[in-house]
Each structure stands twice: as structure tokens, then as C-alpha cells.
Amino acid sequence: MLLSLQDVHVHYNKIAALQGISIEVEEGDFVTLIGSNGAGKSTTLRTISGLERPSAGEIRFKNQSLTRLPPDRILKLGVAQVPEGRRVFKDLTVLENLHLGAFTRGDQAAIKSDLESVFGHFPRLLERSQQLAQTLSGGEQQMLSIGRALMSDPILLLLDEPSLGLAPIVVEEIAKILLEINKRGVAIVLVEQNAELALDLAKRGYVLETGNVALQGEASSLARNEHVKTAYLGI
């Protein structure tokens, strides 16, 4: 087991955002979390990364507890996140953004080869490596955000709504790259509103409703589920 959440509760002030969520991710897995707005998908990712503290429950990564660790320690263990809204450092260049992704690493040779592999995934970032991130288009910023996360050489990659606000053609491109990354052995947890796309890409899925896991299973079987079809796939 790579990552497991056991009965995780999270409260914002007094309001419960997660009410006992249990999720499991295997090594090299591709898991998606789907659900409507406010179901707790983003909160789940934020909690794994240490941006939120669970009020109860346990998060374990490679048999180590993450529950009380700060974000920088969690990243060091191999959990990287592509946050919602991309959140690239707009006043820094593309190259500086990518280097910050590798902030905790010291091995220059390995960083260099990872940089090359990111540029391999996203040739446009190489063309624009000296530009300020704020000059990039939305899709390019998303690529930069993913590339930045990859620069930490993660074991597990968390992605929060990577398709949001992007043109279909760009979404497709990003989807292709996610599969490539997964194929290289990086486990992925993908939060998506576009459930159709998410279930298409992922191996397994969880359906979150009001802070609880409502359904879970193989992505393909979830896609055939009547409830999922009516509620999330619009069929």
C-alpha cells in the first residue's frame, strides 16, 4: 500500500469538510476522486499534502504517518501536488519555477535529467523557459504546474482539477501526458469535475458526496453505475 487514508475527518472552523474518508492508493496506481462542488475532493488532496490538519483519522504514506507533518516534509517523502488553479509563480521565469519544484533536492545531475524529461513532456516550456510565468497561456501554465511538481521526482502525484478552464485540445494533451507519467511508475490521484475524462484515465475511482465516500471501485465499473451516470456523467 502506497497511500492510505483511514477515517479522515477535517473541519474548517466548526464545519466538517471531510467526515471520515478512507482511500487507498497502490504503487503506480491511477486513482480519481469525483464528486460535485464541496464534496471534499480538494480538501482531501490538501490534507494529504499537509495544507490542512485532520481532526481525526490517519494518513499513511509508505508505512509512515503523514498526519502531523508539514507540507515541506511531505513533499520530501515523495508526494507532490499540482494545486487547483495552477498557482505558478507568476513573477518568476519558467525555468525558475521548475527549479523551485526541485527546491529540496541537491543532486544537480538528477535535477538536470529531470528537467530534460519535463521539457520532453512539454516542449513549449523549453521554448519559453526564460519568460515570466505570467506571460504563459492557461494551458501552458498548467503544463508548468505539472512540470514543477514532476521536478520533485515524486512517487505520488496529486492533481487538483487540471482541466479547469482549458480548451478541449489542451485537456487532451495533458491527459495523454498524465498517462505517460503514470506509465513510468508515478502513482496519480486525480481530482476532476470532468468525471467522464477522469474515469476514462483512471484505474480506480472514488465518488465523494458531502465529505463521505459514497461509492468506490474500478473506474470502468463506476462509469457504468446508474447513480454515477445520472449524477456526474450527465447521461
Partner: peptide, 11 residues
């Protein structure tokens, strides 16, 4: 520029 995003880079 962005505290949270920075924290997510291990800063």
C-alpha cells in the same frame, strides 16, 4: 507570491 504553492514545493 504564493505561500501555499511555495509550501507545496517543499519550501
Amino acid at each position: 507570491l504564493d505561500r501555499e504553492a511555495a509550501a507545496l514545493q517543499g519550501i
